[in-house]
Amino acid sequence: MDMKALLLATHANMLGTLDGLVAKAANHAKSAELLGARLADDMHPLSTQIRFLANMPGEALERLGLIRFTSREDDPQTYEEAHAIIAEARALVEDAARFDFPDETAPLAMNLPNGMTFDLTAQEYVRDWALAQFYFHTVAAYAILRQAGLEVGKADYVPHMFKYLREPAA
């Protein structure tokens, strides 16, 4: 699978996961406190995890030289807002299928806000940073909800797998 297919499929699948997790959080007895819930004091709350995940597809597409993107700076304050920014990210991912991605060996300088710069190829960036960071924040969101007592499991984390489910033999 080439990096374009891998990046876009992963973003599409896991944004679907995030949207499902947000729906479960909104319908939970503790919903009022969950957007502010966090795993540890030094970690970001659920609302920030959602913002990070909604920004990441656009940030990746910009780093790959495909679009101009401005990251959202404010966390969602409601579940409706969370669903809306996830929907925007999903639409961006769907639209990105029309782009011609750079060659996988193209050099890419990744500058981080803390002043660090990494020199990678486009493929290394997608594999070692874009996807790794995306999964990290998806797992953080999932773990926050599990820790808060939501009944979520593997089926909630990989709901996209059900499209591959074989029908049972008659």
Results as ranks from 00 to 15, higher is better:
Gln147His: 13
Ala89Ser: 05
Thr78Ile: 06
Ala141Gln: 02
Ile85Met: 05
Glu73Val: 12
Tyr125Thr: 10
Ala106Asn: 14
Asp41Tyr: 09
Pro45Ala: 08
Leu131Gly: 02
Met1His: 06
Met56Lys: 00
Gly115Phe: 07
His83Lys: 06
Glu80Asp: 11
Pro113Arg: 04
Thr105Cys: 07
His83Trp: 11
Glu62Tyr: 06
Met1Arg: 10
Arg63Val: 11
Arg72Pro: 05
Phe162Leu: 14
Ile86Glu: 06
Leu64Gln: 01
Asp95Thr: 06
Ala54Pro: 06
Gln123Val: 07
Leu112Arg: 09
Met3Tyr: 12
Ala26Glu: 13
Gly36Ser: 11
Ala140Gly: 13
Ala155Tyr: 04
Phe162Tyr: 02
Met14Asp: 08
Phe136Met: 07
Ala60Asp: 07
Asn114Ser: 08
Tyr142Val: 00
Glu80Ser: 07
Ala60Gly: 07
Phe136Pro: 11
His28Met: 03
His160Tyr: 06
Pro102Tyr: 09
Leu18Lys: 01
Leu46Asp: 10
Lys154Asn: 10
Ala91Arg: 09
Pro168Phe: 01
His44Gly: 08
Ser47Gly: 03
Val93Cys: 04
Ala109Pro: 02
Thr117Asn: 10
His28Cys: 04
Lys163Gly: 11
Ala54Arg: 03
Phe99Met: 11
Glu151Ala: 13
Ala140Thr: 14
Asn114Lys: 03
Arg146Pro: 00
Ala141Ile: 03
Thr17Glu: 00
Lys163Cys: 05
Thr48Ser: 15
Gln123Trp: 07
Gly153Ile: 13
Lys24Pro: 00
Asp156Gly: 09
Phe99Trp: 14
Ala82Lys: 02
Thr121Leu: 11
Gln147Pro: 02
Leu35Arg: 01
Lys154Tyr: 14
Leu64Tyr: 08
Leu7Val: 01
Met161Val: 13
Glu94Gly: 05
Leu46Ala: 14
Tyr125Leu: 13
Val22His: 00
Glu80Ala: 11
Ala109Asp: 15
Tyr135Met: 12
Ile85Arg: 02
His160Glu: 13
Glu73Thr: 15
Ala155Glu: 09
Asp100Thr: 14
Gln77Cys: 07
Met110Tyr: 14
Thr17Ile: 09
Ala89Lys: 01
Ala23Val: 15
Leu21His: 00
Pro113Thr: 00
Ala26His: 08
Asp19Ile: 04
Ile85Val: 12
Ala60Met: 04
Ala84Phe: 01
Leu53Lys: 04
Ser71Gly: 14
Pro45Thr: 01
Pro57Trp: 03
Ala143Gly: 11
Pro76Asp: 11
Ala89Asp: 05
Asn27Cys: 05
Ala170Tyr: 02
Gln49Cys: 13
Thr10Ala: 07
His160Met: 14
Leu66Pro: 04
Phe162Gln: 15
Phe99Tyr: 15
Val126Gln: 05
Ala122His: 04
Pro107Leu: 13
Leu61Tyr: 03
Gln133Val: 03
Leu39Met: 10
